[in-house]
Design a protein around this nucleic acid. Structure first.
Lengths: 253, 253
DNA sequence: CCAAAAGTGTTGGGTGTACACCCATGC
DNA sequence: GCATGGGTGTACACCCAACACTTTTGG
């Protein structure tokens, strides 16, 4: 097949990588989904789930490309995540492109990175003999942060991607109603508070915390017969609030 | 030249596009640098400066690629900006990748978008018969926002990129010391306030504004003999503050 | 029966906001 | 000399953080 794309310049390979966060309600810890690479490069090393963008090309009988269509990078990231782990994505957002020269030993590979929130569940390995597993996030981060200069825990530049994802998660959780995406539909205020404390690494006063979160106005209180109160995220309220240009006030640090 | 990259999948073309903001101190308005496209597609239309990532390939005598090296996307964006406009970049940050299928009529082109802050000056056209010019940003944004559904003012999906850039600029200016990058090294508090008012579209009280900005601690007061006081950004103070994990407090909306 | 978790209000301090006057410069 | 722009301080209001006790449930 002869390439005939209109540009004669060499093209980079383009992939996505995703940092998948899950919250273990029982253990009250944040987890990260990593896969053990079954193939080179970095065979046996841990890495983020990800893969290459799919482009469908139509060629004429001479092999010239007459049409090509891509999936969006977000779709690519979501598809790779589904394929490799079987998790259902509750939230997904872009971190940015990673393009440092030499980041992939195979050649020029640019990766658009994402982070996603899911409810952790049993994971299945992907197709290319990779095995996915949930690991305690803070332990993984500690390992990453204590690697000697020049060494990496994860394959490629995934250490950097993880650090950026955590930075963004800490930022985003203060202004966007994403903590609830780490919990089942119905949750208690204590569970919400535990997530914030686990993610931000700070303790909060129960009363003040509860008041702040409820004042944001995005939660519905579910009818409760027993003593305990449960809540649910009200997407419409959040959407209308955000459409009115107001920034959500959740927890400030 | 036969492609032999290790991946046999078709690759997208990868480019960067940059939203260049400048502040006209005399007219007290925000400006945007656009170029008039000299070539198809969208010849004659306005667009953002940008271009394709450079990849150097080494091939052996049979034309097989034995080594390839890319510039980073940030370098690409900076280079394209320099080449096409001659402006000196004071600040540049990523907006994210744009990859909607069909965004470029020529084929699959993924663009990593950036926004940059520069001091507006005389601009020269680029090499491919493009002409750069500074336009009042809010007028451009108005045009974009009033385009009929399905029509675009700028080429490609650059309308979307501009909107995202402005959204980010409004966010970032509240938390990062970037407003000063739109001004000469030495500036007055009034100039700073004018930028905030122009960017955020709100008026501020002089005294409160000045106090807030000075309380942030990132400005040095320059020795003044006359009546007027001038300031300068102290990068070290900002860096040490940010390294201590504290978030900068500037102007909140 | 005891321990641990969850529900409930108030108060003090700090931070942000509103506001008026004076002085210097330039037209 | 007058108008404009730039410099300066205070008072009030609101929001946020600190805090103790009671009740229920589960072991």
């Amino acid at each position: 097949m002869k390439p005939n794309y209109g540009y004669k310049y060499p093209r980079p390979a383009v992939a996505t990588d995703s940092v998948i966060f899950g919250y273990d309600v029982k253990e009250k810890i944040l987890k990260i989904l990593l896969i053990e690479r079954g193939i080179e490069p970095f065979q046996g090393k841990m890495s983020l789930p990800g893969g290459f963008i799919k482009i469908k090309t139509e060629t004429d009988e001479d092999g010239f490309v007459i049409n090509e269509e891509n999936e969006s990078l977000l779709d690519c990231a979501r598809r790779e995540l589904e394929e490799e782990t079987g998790c259902k994505v509750r939230y997904m957002t872009e971190l940015g492109a990673f393009s440092t020269p030499g980041r992939d030993p195979r050649g020029v590979v640019i990766s658009d990175a994402y982070y996603a929130l899911v409810i952790p569940g049993p994971v299945r390995g992907g197709d290319d003999a990779m095995e996915a597993q949930w690991l305690p996030f803070h332990e993984v981060l500690d390992v990453i942060n204590h690697m000697p200069k020049g060494f990496h825990f994860l394959a490629f530049d995934h250490d950097d991607i993880v650090k950026k994802a955590y930075y963004r998660l800490k930022e985003d959780i203060c202004f966007e109603p994403i903590a609830f995406r780490l919990l089942p539909e119905k949750f208690s205020m204590t569970q919400v508070q535990n997530i914030y404390q686990e993610v931000l690494g700070k303790e909060f006063d129960r009363r003040n915390f509860s008041r702040k979160v409820l004042d944001s106005g995005v939660l519905d209180m579910l009818p409760h017969t027993g003593r305990n109160i449960y809540y649910r995220l009200n997407e419409e309220k959040y959407e209308s609030m955000r459409n009115s240009g107001k920034r959500l006030k959740l927890i400030f640090v």
